[in-house]
């Protein structure tokens, strides 16, 4: 029990009030400054809404509130893998959305989520023997491809600097949708980003070739050749021989006048 005399109690209260009173304004201003700084860097991507809270349940919500967001998202992600193994595509789609909303700045969720939907779910739908006919199967497959594409594109909106989302979108256009023009565009964007692997630079030209657009392909190869410095051309990963042979082939095929050719002889 406290037998402290009243005057000392008052003095103590005043000292505490003084300390906190001096600190509080500094604290608020400082915290606002930190928040602005983090906003500028596009952090704090998460806004919890009621729907999300319902989906998470109480335990996981507390986990998130106490700063364990990424661990919570990872646990939900494990469920995505389980749903995939059980071929529960709609559940998987919902879980992918939950993960990406929890951590919109974690590219791996967009990347893997898009892949799960556009490839695994759509291939699953194609092979779904419970569907009455082929047309329905193809429609269902297309539905999942579009879902996956949507995930990729929203992922790109949130993480435009992450090359892999661009190149995976390109891959989807190329291999599942046979839309080589779009594939070329996305590969092109991917190849221009930091950390992108070198081989991507050749993909747009190859896509034009696959689309049967010789003119486009020629321009793309040529642009690539001209972009490379002489020193770069000698590096193995830029595969000079491949670029050169394609340009020569297309210059021949398109009968480009000699004075305009890269390789006149």
């Amino acid at each position: 029990m406290n037998g402290l005399p009243l005057n000392l109690r008052l003095r103590r209260a005043m000292l505490i009030a003084l300390l906190l009173g001096l600190w509080a304004p500094v604290k608020i201003v400082w915290e606002q400054q930190i928040a602005r700084e983090q906003d500028n860097l596009r952090y704090h991507g998460l806004v919890m809404n009621r729907q999300m809270r319902d989906e998470l349940g109480q335990g996981l919500t507390i986990g998130i509130l106490s700063g364990m967001r990424s661990v919570v998202a990872d646990f939900i992600w494990l469920e995505v893998t389980t749903a995939w193994e059980n071929q529960e595509w709609f559940r998987m789609g919902g879980l992918v959305n939950l993960c990406t909303s929890l951590q919109p700045r974690a590219p791996v969720f967009w990347d893997m989520g898009g892949w799960q939907l556009a490839w695994n779910a759509s291939v699953g739908a194609e092979r779904d023997v419970t569907q009455p006919n082929e047309l329905r199967r193809l429609k269902a497959a297309r539905f999942w491809i579009d879902k996956g594409l949507d995930v990729y594109k929203r992922g790109i909106e949130n993480n435009p600097e992450y090359w892999r989302l661009w190149s995976d979108t390109g891959l989807l256009y190329q291999q599942r949708l046979k839309d080589y023009k779009n594939a070329a565009y996305y590969y092109q964007r991917a190849s221009e980003l930091p950390n992108a692997p070198v081989y991507l630079e050749r993909f747009p030209a190859i896509m034009y070739g696959l689309a049967g657009d010789d003119q486009g392909a020629y321009e793309a190869w040529r642009a690539l050749w001209e972009k490379l410095t002489p020193a770069q051309r000698e590096m193995k990963e830029h595969w000079k021989e491949k670029i050169e042979s394609n340009i020569r082939r297309l210059e021949q095929k398109l009968s480009v006048p000699k004075e305009k050719r890269v390789f006149p002889n």
Partner: peptide, 27 residues
């Protein structure tokens, strides 16, 4: 709450670091 309680949420930029985002040393 605003005047007395410390802002623990700003430390969740650890999440951004884990997601592979570049967080400048300055911050």
């Amino acid at each position: 709450i605003a005047l007395l309680i410390p802002d623990m949420n700003s430390f969740t930029i650890v999440d951004e670091i884990l997601a592979g985002n570049r967080v400048p040393w300055h911050d």
